[in-house]
Nucleic acid binder design. Structure first.
Lengths: 240, 240
DNA sequence: CAAATATGACTGACTAGTCAGTCAAATTCA
DNA sequence: TGAATTTGACTGACTAGTCAGTCATATTTG
């Protein structure tokens, strides 16, 4: 843990730093689109690809084993890279872990922020959100990340803080707005719900946990559950 | 794993050592409750106490660091015992971990089973249960165990299975009974709730997670939240 | 005192992080 | 243009440690 003393190194190499800059700009170019027939990756592009590969491999390994039990040798092998290469891109194991969570969560933030954009009743918005959440998060690798946060968050306060700031508080703020809108429109009768947006999200989180822990033995119809929960919030409107 | 080589040890130094032993035993004598005037612990009792101490220490260490990062040296020190002693009581680290979770969960099962015993309306029962849950679990070390299950459950399928069998399925079954009773009594209008007892429990679980991850920075009035949630389930009954 | 217990120094397996050297790509030069 | 030179991304053997589990020795008990 607290190994790596300050050391007396001074890092003659003024280089290194620019790697980040180049990688960052090239990051957008990444792989993905293959419409192009010829693709001669230059140095910066290859570096960005490597970085990407390390993050992806790290995601797989960390979600499979947790932070402490993950071996960087395995991450390197899975990424098709030498172990030392990891340290060209990330300061240490923890930095990789944080960057990985960071990267994987940006899309989540996007989703949460975009939800209110669509029109319709608040109930419709939440119903759509529930379906999207189950399909895109609870039952995918993104769900593993959420579980990873819950699992390791207590051991990485800075990670928990980041997650709270960037995802939880924003998500809850958006949800509160939505609830207030529902109250104003007369869709939601209990005004106190706006005090605890967590209530609306809770079953979705339980769905994520359930899927990861018990999903194989006792599958849960998460979408159906979330709809029943919405019935509680908005009052039943089953067609029966 | 596959150790057990021949070895070529010799160790001439038989010196010192015993001084430490005396100090160690003196420290271990500690113990807590001294209400009893005479206490002649025989061999079996002392062994049981040791075992207990190891489990308690293990609980503290595992909840603080997770499975992989916990050192048995620390567990031993915290228990006031030598490391070897742990192996007199448990086959290995994993056995200690499982036994510890097992032991710590028995009380939880008791709580869940006892809930319906008390009389009153279903709403009253659940309200009492919510208060108890927050006071005795969410904000105590028991909550850490729940988080520990979520954290390590994916890595220990047998542990997740045990937890599901012994706690989750029983707890949900009891909750379903309660919900059905509420429906029969006319307290709960949405009959579909009985299909998803998870919904009733979800905010309580969120409270546990919240307390562990964000509690220090953003405290959550869990009891108030759970009551609002009960308002959703039973219909408002705020005196206003 | 012999048996039962407890101890903690020790071992071996394993791993995070380092760094001197390599070589393909980029750049400069003639 | 194409040979010479420079760059820096990448490698992987290596260092310095960590820690689960063992066992010879010491202590306690009946």
């Amino acid at each position: 843990m607290k190994t790596a003393k300050a050391k007396s190194r001074k890092i003659a190499t003024a280089s290194s730093a620019n790697t980040r800059a180049v990688a960052g700009s090239a990051g957008g170019a990444t792989s993905a689109q293959t419409g192009r027939p010829a693709k001669p990756p230059n140095r910066a592009e290859r570096a960005a690809q490597r970085r990407e590969a390390i993050i992806t491999a790290g995601l797989d390994e960390f979600t499979a084993r947790g932070f402490a039990a993950t071996r960087l040798d395995d991450v390197a092998r899975r990424a098709g890279v030498a172990k030392g290469t990891i340290y060209l891109h990330f300061k240490d194991k923890e930095a990789l872990f944080q960057e990985l969570v960071r990267t994987a969560l940006v899309p989540l933030i996007g989703n949460l922020a975009a939800a209110p954009a669509a029109g319709g009743s608040v109930r419709d918005i939440l119903e759509r959100f529930a379906e999207t959440f189950v399909r895109e998060i609870a039952e995918t690798k993104r769900g593993d990340i959420v579980r990873l946060i819950v699992a390791e968050g207590a051991r990485f306060p800075s990670l928990a803080d980041f997650y709270f700031r960037e995802v939880v508080s924003r998500g809850l703020a958006a949800m509160r707005k939505l609830i207030e809108s529902g109250i104003a429109r007369g869709e939601i009768s209990n005004a106190r719900l706006a005090d605890f947006p967590q209530i609306v999200v809770a079953p979705a989180l339980v769905a994520v946990m359930w899927h990861g822990l018990f999903g194989r033995h006792a599958p849960l119809d998460a979408v159906a559950m979330l709809k029943v929960h919405l019935d509680l919030i908005f009052g039943e409107r089953r067609v029966s």
